[in-house]
Write a protein that binds this DNA or RNA. Sequence first.
DNA 1: TCTGGGGTCCTAGGACCC
DNA 2: TCTGGGGTCCTAGGACCC
Length: 428
Amino acid sequence: MYIKNKKRIFALADCNSFYASCERVFNPKLNNRPVVVLSNNDGCIVARTNEAKELGIKMGEPLFKAKKIIEKYNVKVFSSNYALYGSMSNRVMKILEQSFPNIEIYSIDEAFMEISDLKKIYDYSEYAKKIREIILKWTGIPVSIGIGETKTLAKIANQIAKDNPKINGVFDITKIKNKEKILKKIKVGKIWGIGNKLSKFLIKNNIYNAYEFIKQDNRWVRKNMNVLGLKTKMELNGISCYELENSFKQRKSCCVSRSFGKKITSLKNMREAVSTYISRAAEKIRNEKLVSNNINLYIRTSPFKKVAKEYYSNSVSIPLNFPTNNTIILNKATLLGLNKIFKKGYLYQKAGVILSGLENENSDLNLFEEDDKKKEFLMNAFDFINQKYGNNSVRIASEGIEKKWLMKRSKCSSNFTTNLKDLLVVKC
DNA sequence: TCTGGGGTCCTAGGACCC
DNA sequence: TCTGGGGTCCTAGGACCC
């Protein structure tokens, strides 16, 4: 509940170069050396240590473009290892949960806290510094903490803490009453909520930094940047528009998509890929006791191809007769959809499925019929075996066996998942 | 032959985030 | 030669209704 006279203060804890830091924990020789971590399929650079940043390697840059610098400076390169990062994230978040009564886990490496909820703590930055030290000591992960009157200001404070190693990883912007000087140093593109497109638009209108942005007329901001732009402006002015959110919020969609390690040309291979993706998606929503009302399937060639006639992208929305999380039903519908959009003669680079219209498994009134009960029983068996013996031990036949199109992952640090031989393939 | 206005609901696409 | 994946939210515009 909002208490009128209470001054609310937010903190944002953000792990520094998270994926790269995780790799360092298990390989201390990499300390002080430039390290980068790649996206799926070894495509882009998604995490860089400070040493790698200083070499001029950019966030999101494709690996092949950074190749020269990487070789010249002997940068250590890792494929992403999400099993490792997930478990490291859990450790960090556990400590934060124990240290703050009210916390929102915002992403794998970030959490917002309402720091003003802490009783008997008068110096927030001293407390934050202490927590930061504990996290470093217990997990090996360096964290920066920003403190501000709103989430957006806490983000900015966090950025300042990161950019200035001298201040020990914690910065409290609430201690600065006149923020003009500090906001003038924040470029519009660095503001949380202002991305590439809006930042270009603002610069075109001679608005270069956060201070210039908050001086704009509300109506102008609302008209050109919609209601979210206006909220961002208010947040920068210290008026909180974004509350802490419950982490058990039910998701609204579930997406599984991958680029292929090798381009797909045949319908047979594409059927394998989309069957695999829809199976994973079905598993995910079963896990959360959800059912879906609609599948969206898309396939495309590489968007970086110069020649227009080599480019093809299409999608199909497949409504389901009744909400379900059954792999067999979802797979059938997906493959029918694929027939509608697959065209021969293209080098396909990526495909994906999105389950939407998600609702609670038991919320609908469609009672199971006898046949459905059998199917549900089969799905339970699927999940049980896959959880026990490793993913993909049992699967539907159309997923295929060879999977020549699987993604590349050539520089992975350590594979914790068991590599059991395929146990079962169910024909249906 | 002439052919309204206002409301709701849904979806695709685009913007943002990490 | 080689360019990630998984989310959310907002809006414009079409479909539909009276």
